[in-house]
């Protein structure tokens, strides 16, 4: 699945719900399935700044693809990051750097969050891309 396909899938999933309470219910469920970051990586170095609750994010390169794991202490935040992980996980670094995360706007997530929370969301997305960029530079695979 490409990043684009993953995003479309998320958008379709959210269209099934009539109101935001249901969307949040769904986010909470997704949050519970987030690929767990290992305990040793839940430290200051992996903490994302700009979130109201704490979020840790880890990335590693596996067969040329970036694998993300994360955790957070609020379930809704975990749900949001699980959407980001679902779109970008197991993709080539170059594609992640280039990715346009349109689904955030399309499902109305950004406008539904308060400004501080929307900032947190952007910080998460930025940090994920930042990891990808670092892997790209490491590999000298700068064609993207």
């Amino acid at each position: 699945m490409t990043i684009q396909q993953a995003q479309t899938e998320i958008e379709e999933e959210f269209e099934l719900f009539d109101d935001w309470m249901q969307k949040y219910e769904h986010l909470i469920e997704l949050g519970k399935d987030l690929p767990q970051i290992s305990e040793e990586h839940k430290d200051d170095e992996h903490l994302i700044k700009g979130c109201q609750s704490r979020v840790w994010l880890h990335a590693r390169l596996e067969n040329g693809r970036v694998r993300y794991s994360a955790d957070g202490d609020a379930l809704i935040t975990k749900g949001i990051i699980s959407l980001l992980v679902r779109s970008l996980d197991d993709q080539p670094a170059a594609d992640i750097v280039e990715a346009d995360l349109e689904f955030i706007d399309r499902i109305g997530l950004k406008e539904h969050l308060s400004p501080t929370r929307a900032n947190g969301l952007l910080s998460m997305a930025k940090q994920m891309k930042f990891y990808a960029l670092a892997f790209q530079a490491q590999n000298g695979d700068a064609h993207g």
Partner: peptide
């Protein structure tokens, strides 16, 4: 053990303004 942030966001959806943090 739930984070107060979740409680605040969900109550807000119901029109209920409380403080969290």
């Amino acid at each position: 053990s739930n984070h107060p942030y979740d409680t605040g966001v969900l109550l807000d959806q119901m029109g209920i303004a409380i403080r969290t943090g």
